[in-house]
């Protein structure tokens, strides 16, 4: 098997909270993404999925763990090496209104990364900015306009064009469609899929929307309280979840037909504070299958056929 494009092991990021407590936002995450593959990261709000995504790109400096991208050690990269890595892995943001500098024209925003990385300058950079816009479905003529003249969906396209400017191999997308209307979501998802196919882009796709992940990604990692609790191919993970949390998460998705609604247990209670995670398995206070061992020991990772979970009492 060839080495994955991105390999993350034991990624940890703790924040200092009020009164000196440590908030364990990301607490030992293992992930890997193959070239041209889309990996989804799902979980409730506050489970650390966005922090994990940012830590992979070192937009937030991780506290521990290893990140390897195209064979290079991301955490050890400094200066020019880090700049070279940044060219290969880019980010798409959730809020299309905050992700563009309101004072710069679209053309300048898109040409800037090209000039900074000395890939093109002046008229050539301006030319490429137009090509990028056309690639994301906007006319090149909008180069001279400013962000406030565009709708959310158009801005998201511009944000994607900016991420593509440096010809990356990996896009980390943090909830790229959750701020958009449903009809616009579909357009952006289709655009991302087309880019994945045409450019051979790999994705880390962070979302709380299981339907979107199911459609867009081939593999998925389910996060709970800073840890990956289950990981595997999208179809298997959602059809035959092994971790009770994944199943509850899946069954929490509203179903239109009342006769087809799942009758099983519901996900109750709130996500515990990552500043004081429960001992043993983090999920035990909300888990219908929890027993004594779950309260004492963190479950080990077991994997079969590329589908793994961390649970003492996995579902079959």
């Amino acid at each position: 098997m060839t080495a994955p494009l991105l390999q993350v092991q034991g990624l940890v990021k703790h924040f200092a909270g009020r009164g000196g407590v440590r908030v364990r936002a990301v607490d030992g995450v293992d992930l890997d993404v193959a070239a041209a593959e889309a990996l989804g990261i799902v979980g409730e709000s506050g489970c650390g999925k966005s922090t994990a995504a940012r830590a992979m790109l070192r937009l937030i400096e991780p506290d521990a763990g290893s990140i390897r991208f195209e064979g290079a050690d991301v955490r050890a990269a400094r200066g020019a090496a880090l700049t070279a890595l940044r060219r290969r892995m880019q980010m798409v943001f959730q809020d299309p209104y905050a992700s563009l500098n309101p004072r710069r024209s679209i053309g300048r925003t898109l040409a800037e990364p090209l000039t900074v990385h000395r890939l093109a300058r002046g008229a050539a950079a301006w030319e490429q900015a137009g090509a990028l816009l056309e690639e994301v479905g906007l006319p090149a003529a909008v180069r001279s306009r400013y962000p406030h003249e565009f709708s959310g969906g158009q801005r998201q396209r511009i944000g994607i064009a900016r991420a593509l400017a440096l010809r990356p191999a990996l896009l980390v997308a943090d909830e790229p469609v959750s701020a958009l209307d449903v009809s616009v979501q579909a357009q952006i998802l289709l655009l991302l899929r087309r880019l994945q196919q045409e450019r051979g882009l790999a994705f880390v796709f962070v979302s709380h929307d299981l339907a979107v992940v199911r459609w867009f990604c081939s593999r998925v990692a389910v996060m709970y309280l800073g840890r990956v609790v289950e990981r595997g191919p999208v179809a298997t993970v959602f059809r035959n979840p092994r971790h009770p949390y994944t199943r509850l998460l899946r069954d929490a998705v509203p179903v239109a037909d009342p006769h087809r609604r799942a009758a099983g247990p519901r996900l109750v209670g709130d996500l515990p504070s990552p500043a004081a995670p429960p001992p043993g398995c983090h999920f035990h206070p909300r888990c219908p299958r929890a027993t004594a061992i779950c309260r004492e020991q963190a479950p080990a990772w077991t994997e079969a056929g590329g589908h793994g979970a961390a649970c003492h009492h996995p579902l079959d």
């Binding site: 880090l82 880019q90 980010m91 943001f93 905050a98 500098n101 990364p113 900074v116």
Partner: peptide, 13 residues
């Protein structure tokens, strides 16, 4: 904290 500043860092500025 705004995303366009974060984008600048991601772009290696």
């Amino acid at each position: 904290q705004r995303a366009f500043v974060e984008a600048g860092r991601a772009l290696g500025f």
